Simulated assay, not measured.
Amino acid sequence: MGRATLIGFSAVAMWALLALLTDASGDVPPFLLSAITFAIGTTVGLVARVVAPPAETVKIPPQVWIIGIAGLFGYHFFYFTALRNAPAVEASLIAYLWPLFIVLGSALMPGERLQWHHVAGAALGLAGTFLIVTRGSGLSFDSRYAFGYAMAGVCAFVWSAYSLLSRRFPAVPTSVVTWFCAATSLLSLICHFMLEETVLPATAGEWLAVAGLGLMPVGLAFYAWDIGVKRGNIQVLGAASYAAPLLSTLVLIATGFAEPTPAILLACVLITSGAVLAAKSLLFSRKPAAAKA
């Protein structure tokens, strides 16, 4: 279970590159960027199938298709809708409730046991994310943006539901994510033609950023996340997911796109402490004493 949890956390690490690569991709509108990057993510899965063909063909239940496509496309659709209808700071913070929803929702999963340190760890992570998203300046909710806030809440619910429901189908191979990515790419392209004006990357650097998005945050990350939520410790993975905005901010600082502040330092302490607290049963578990002869 520890290895699967680490694989799942590698998805969180890859999502930390999302802001940097998205910013470097130029003025490509969101749904078009989603269509292109998920097409690359589909290619990642197809290449994996060629390199390591599935040992056997597994029949995929219809509900898995619904969960997978609704999860990947639904999350991005509602997130983009939220950003179009509410200030980015408030919408982003509401959307980042999904790790907490995963931790709390895990109590409803068969064979799972939710303990106080899981909830406390997730709460510390949320507090740290609050500092990062708001930059320590607080929030300003306005009833005019109620629809956008609601869409951000739906976004958080959709991703947490996708993650938790995926765990109910551990026998379904991760290779099925290939087709989830393909469907998300197609649906995003349809939304692009309906809602956006086409703007392609203008330089080779912007195309490289788009390729990087498709290979990692919108490619390998979803395959790694599938392994983590199906076979790893989902409470720990949920709480540790709050590291994504922290790592993203640290990447932006390292590349000169952001400045370090006391709020970020405090957020680092909160999120790291929360992740360690949530994972304390894995990190500090006592090994059974050897039996006496």
Rank of each mutant, 00 (worst) to 15 (best):
Met1Cys: 06
Thr5Arg: 09
Gly8Tyr: 10
Phe9Glu: 02
Phe9Ile: 03
Ser10His: 12
Leu18Lys: 07
Leu18Gln: 12
Leu20Phe: 13
Leu21Asn: 01
Ala24His: 05
Ser25Cys: 12
Phe31Thr: 08
Leu32Tyr: 03
Ser34Val: 02
Ile36Asn: 05
Ala39Ile: 04
Leu46Ala: 14
Leu46Phe: 04
Val47His: 06
Val51Gln: 08
Ala52Phe: 08
Pro54Asp: 05
Ala55Thr: 11
Ala55Asn: 02
Glu56Val: 13
Lys59Trp: 15
Ala70His: 06
Gly71Ala: 10
Tyr75Trp: 13
His76Ala: 03
His76Ile: 07
His76Ser: 04
Phe77Trp: 14
Tyr79Cys: 01
Thr81Met: 09
Ala82Tyr: 01
Leu83Ser: 09
Asn85Gly: 02
Ala86Asn: 01
Pro87Lys: 06
Ala88Asn: 14
Ala91Val: 00
Trp98Phe: 14
Ile102His: 11
Val103Cys: 05
Val103Ile: 10
Gly105Asp: 06
Leu108Asp: 13
Met109Gln: 13
Pro110Leu: 14
Pro110Met: 08
Glu112Tyr: 06
Gly121Cys: 03
Leu126Pro: 03
Thr129Phe: 02
Leu131Thr: 03
Val133Lys: 07
Leu139Phe: 10
Phe141His: 11
Tyr145Arg: 09
Ala152Val: 07
Gly153Leu: 05
Val154Trp: 03
Ala156Gly: 14
Phe157Leu: 05
Val158His: 06
Ala161Ile: 03
Tyr162Met: 06
Leu165Arg: 11
Ser166Leu: 15
Arg167Met: 10
Arg167Glu: 11
Ala171Gly: 09
Val172Thr: 04
Pro173Tyr: 13
Ser175Asp: 12
Val177Met: 07
Trp179Asp: 08
Ala182Asn: 06
Ala183Ile: 07
Thr184Ile: 13
Thr184Phe: 01
Thr184Ala: 12
Ser185Met: 02
Leu189Val: 09
His192Gln: 09
Met194Asn: 14
Glu196His: 07
Pro201Val: 11
Ala202Thr: 10
Glu206Pro: 15
Trp207Lys: 05
Trp207Gln: 13
Ala209Asn: 07
Gly214Cys: 00
Gly214Leu: 00
Leu215Arg: 07
Met216Gly: 02
Pro217Tyr: 13
Pro217Ile: 12
Leu220Asn: 08
Phe222His: 00
Tyr223Gly: 04
Trp225Ala: 03
Trp225Thr: 09
Trp225Pro: 00
Asp226Leu: 07
Arg231Pro: 01
Arg231Val: 00
Gly232Pro: 13
Val236Thr: 11
Val236Tyr: 03
Gly238Tyr: 02
Ala239Gln: 14
Ala244Asn: 06
Ala244Met: 08
Pro245His: 15
Ser248His: 12
Thr249Asn: 12
Leu252Asn: 11
Ala258Thr: 08
Thr261Cys: 08
Ala263Phe: 10
Leu265Ser: 15
Leu266His: 07
Val269Ala: 09
Leu270Phe: 11
Gly274Ser: 06
Ala275His: 07
Ala275Gly: 11
Lys280His: 06
Ser281Tyr: 02
Leu283Glu: 03
Ala289Tyr: 11
Ala290His: 02
Ala291Leu: 15
Lys292Ser: 15
